[in-house]
């Protein structure tokens, strides 16, 4: 079920669309220029980025030379291993009490992810409170309220246009007095190159630290798998502002693969924790590097 099937389903369609032939490629039995060119095509097409693609292919040549590999079928395993080595194996585990703040640029799927996360934690028998700290976008609070209802959790919400830090302050106070396990903070979408909005995010972050020092802090950034190389800049700047712990990669149910997370893990050591594979409440899954790599190749 789930991740693997959905991704394979999506990828099957892309593969058809681009005349995909990796398997044939590996079956062909020769490592010529065409082989590496096709490989490059696959990686670049998955938004891995030109530099990381080059590094991966270089590493593949290197490892195969080292082990004297001449069988192309084996090359696939080698390639897979290289990608797995980059991605690593890290799972998200929240120690309670915890505050999980979700941020990212506009429209990537933050609010939806909050709803799905709430659902996951409720299933783990945790008590959850949602803080509607996007007080900026039209009807953001109402949208989150629907998700809170779906997940059957409490929500703290102020008026549109009010101070998001005040929302967080209220939520944290409420969580402390009630002994809530996990507070999920939804934030307004913001482009990382907007200084004042990043300052606002830092302020929200500080309020949590100051008001709830005993809580475990987790800052997640949501990336849309459809996004290209700009995701590097997004993670870089959000990380500088508020220390990002991990990534939620959404919209993997489409044909995009979000290969830029390889570059991000490789250069900033920030792992993917969850993947979004649809708009339903159950469509958030723990990241599984193996299936993900299978999906790309």
């Amino acid at each position: 079920m789930g991740f693997f099937k959905k991704i394979i389903e999506g990828l099957r369609k892309t593969k058809q669309a681009i005349g995909f032939k990796l398997n044939e490629l590996f079956k062909r039995g020769i490592f010529d220029d065409e082989f590496y060119e096709e490989l490059e095509f696959i990686l670049l097409g998955a938004d891995v980025g030109s530099e990381t693609t080059e590094n991966i292919i270089e590493e593949l040549r290197e490892r195969m030379r080292r082990d004297n590999v001449s069988d192309t079928a084996k090359a696939r395993e080698y390639l897979k291993q290289i990608l797995l080595d980059i991605l690593g194996e890290e799972q998200f585990e929240a120690e309670c009490p915890a505050v999980v703040m979700v941020s990212g640029v506009n429209g990537v799927g933050k609010t939806t992810t909050i709803g799905k996360l709430a659902n996951i934690f409720v299933k783990q028998k945790k008590s959850v409170l949602i803080a509607a700290a996007d007080t900026f976008r039209a009807a953001a609070g109402e949208q989150l309220e629907v998700w809170a209802k779906r997940a059957n959790v409490r929500i703290i919400k102020h008026e549109e246009g009010s101070d998001p830090a005040a929302v967080v302050f209220d939520a944290v106070s409420s969580a402390k007095s009630r002994g809530t396990d996990i507070v999920l903070v939804d934030t307004a979408g913001r482009l990382h190159n907007k200084k004042n909005l990043m300052e606002e995010l830092k302020k929200i972050n500080r309020v949590i630290d100051r008001e709830f020092p005993e809580a475990q802090r987790y800052n997640l950034i949501v990336l849309d798998a459809t996004t290209g190389q700009n995701a590097v800049s997004q993670v870089d700047i959000f990380n500088e502002a508020i220390d990002i712990d991990g990534i939620v990669l959404t919209k993997l149910d489409g044909t995009a693969k979000g290969g830029v997370v390889l570059t991000i893990k490789d250069t900033m050591d920030i792992p993917v924790y969850f993947v979004g594979v649809g708009e339903g409440i159950d469509d958030l899954l723990p990241f599984d590097a193996n299936s993900y790599v299978e999906g790309i190749l």
């Binding site: 892309t14 669309a17 670049l44 097409g45 998955a46 938004d47 640029v105 429209g107 849309d224 459809t226 996004t227 290209g228 190389q229 700009n230 995701a231 489409g254 044909t255 995009a256 693969k257 830029v260």
Partner: peptide
């Protein structure tokens, strides 16, 4: 179309 879209823009 989101200006940040990557390779998938063509398929979309």
């Amino acid at each position: 179309v989101d200006a940040m879209t990557g390779q998938d823009a063509v398929n979309v």
